[in-house]
């Protein structure tokens, strides 16, 4: 089975990146420097308009190739400088799943949806068939293959969007608020699918999300952006325990907020329900 080789070396390197949309007066990104290792599960969050989506668009070349605008600094993804490579070429390295699956899906059946990108790569039919089956199976949507993407639920649509991106066998999967229109149970299930892709295939994940309650135990690294810059980063425990995360308007998990608001909190951060139960049983 195909698996991204897991080794600790940066797969994304961003150096001094600044970007201004055409016609905009203000920079959307200012002097961003960031390196992401192969196999990381990174959650990118921040208030709306902080530059999260813009940063993602730089990683698959939509910026500058599609949006234009003024870009400074370098973005290197899988050893390709995005400035010098076409979106189609980058799409084989970086899969992108959008906020609203309706904007991404267009084919008459789930199968057609998944093979479309593969046919465009002019892969041999056997390979296409194989990848189709693999993607359907990995995401657990084999039963949906004949269905129209328009008559399935939002959660299922997002899975189809992920499967169609996965079939391209990218090394990096970027998901821009993929759960924003899903109900909580569907969101939780989708996060589990994403976590599985990260753990079993070693796929590098960049997830833009506000729903940190459900993610805090799945992600390795949380990055908080504000006003076009990176402000706080670290593992979820470190990030959520810094008060500045709260000041920046981040939806830190309620359990952590409860901890922060206690009259005499224990020294060690209570990060999960289990932490809380353990603490209260001990005292």
């Amino acid at each position: 089975m195909w698996r991204v080789e897991k080794m600790v070396s940066p797969i994304i390197e961003i150096d001094g990146l600044s970007y201004t949309y055409p016609g905009a007066k203000k920079q959307s990104l200012s002097n961003v420097t960031l390196s992401i290792d192969k196999g990381d599960f990174v959650t990118l969050t921040g208030t709306s308009g902080c530059g999260k989506t813009t940063l993602c668009r730089c990683l698959n070349g939509l910026i500058p190739h599609f949006y234009g605008g003024e870009i400074k600094g370098d973005v290197v993804v899988s050893n390709l400088n995005v400035r010098d490579h076409a979106i189609s070429e980058l799409a084989q390295q970086v899969g992108f799943v959008f906020q609203n699956p309706e904007n991404q899906l267009f084919a008459l059946s789930v199968e057609r949806e998944i093979v479309f990108g593969l046919e465009n790569l002019a892969l041999p039919p056997d390979e296409i068939r194989e990848r189709l089956e693999w993607a359907l199976k990995t995401i657990g949507i084999e039963a949906l293959r004949e269905r129209s993407p328009y008559e399935i639920s939002g959660g299922q649509q997002q899975r189809v969007a992920i499967a169609s991106v996965l079939a391209m066998k990218p090394e990096i999967l970027i998901l821009d608020e993929p759960t924003s229109s899903l109900d909580p149970q569907a969101a939780k299930n989708l996060f589990q699918v994403i976590s599985k892709l990260n753990k079993t295939l070693g796929l590098t994940i960049i997830l833009v999300e506000h729903r940190l309650d459900l993610l805090s135990t799945l992600t390795d690294r949380v990055i908080i952006m504000d006003g076009g810059s990176l402000r706080i980063e670290g593992n979820p425990r470190e990030v959520f325990s810094s008060m500045s995360a709260k000041l920046m308007g981040i939806g830190i998990p309620k359990i952590v907020r409860l901890y922060q608001e206690l009259e005499s909190p224990p020294e060690k951060l209570l990060f999960s329900i289990e932490d809380f139960v353990g603490y209260l049983k001990r005292i």
Binding site: S180, M248, G249
Partner: peptide, 8 residues
């Protein structure tokens, strides 16, 4: 939907 914590 799509609103961050401070807006919520």
């Amino acid at each position: 939907v799509g609103q961050d914590q401070s807006q919520k």
